[in-house]
């Protein structure tokens, strides 16, 4: 179990820390974007803008912050309900 945990931590750390060594010129582009570009090259069809554009000003930040808060609260509440108490145990 301990070995598994250490392996998991190393794998996650590698994902977070090693990016500084990346060689790609245009760093951290998503594969989705690479495919979009390839498709545009082949067919001339470009990816469309989102229906609801959240890239203007701080709108994106607002939605992420509000959504993150709401989701985190709900997630934490449900997590505690399900995993917070072991079977047969009760909280005081």
């Amino acid at each position: 179990m301990r070995v598994k945990k250490i392996f998991l931590i190393i794998a996650l750390a590698a994902c977070l820390l090693f990016p500084v060594t990346a060689r790609a010129e245009d760093k951290w582009q998503g594969t989705d974007d690479l495919v979009d570009r390839k498709m545009e090259e082949l067919t001339g069809v470009a990816a469309r803008e989102p229906l609801i554009d959240i890239s203007q000003g701080n709108l994106g930040l607002f939605i992420f912050a509000a959504g993150g808060f709401a989701a985190g609260t709900l997630f934490g509440y449900q997590w505690r309900r399900i995993f917070g108490e072991r079977r047969g145990e009760k909280n005081g």
């Binding site: 994902c15 990016p19 060594t21 990346a22 060689r23 951290w28 989705d32 989701a71």
Partner: peptide, 20 residues
């Protein structure tokens, strides 16, 4: 929530310099 989060999160891949 976990599926939404995992399928949206762009994780950088070492060396390659891309993310998915």
């Amino acid at each position: 929530a976990a599926v939404f989060f995992m399928s949206l999160l762009p994780i950088p891949v070492p060396i390659l310099g891309t993310s998915s």
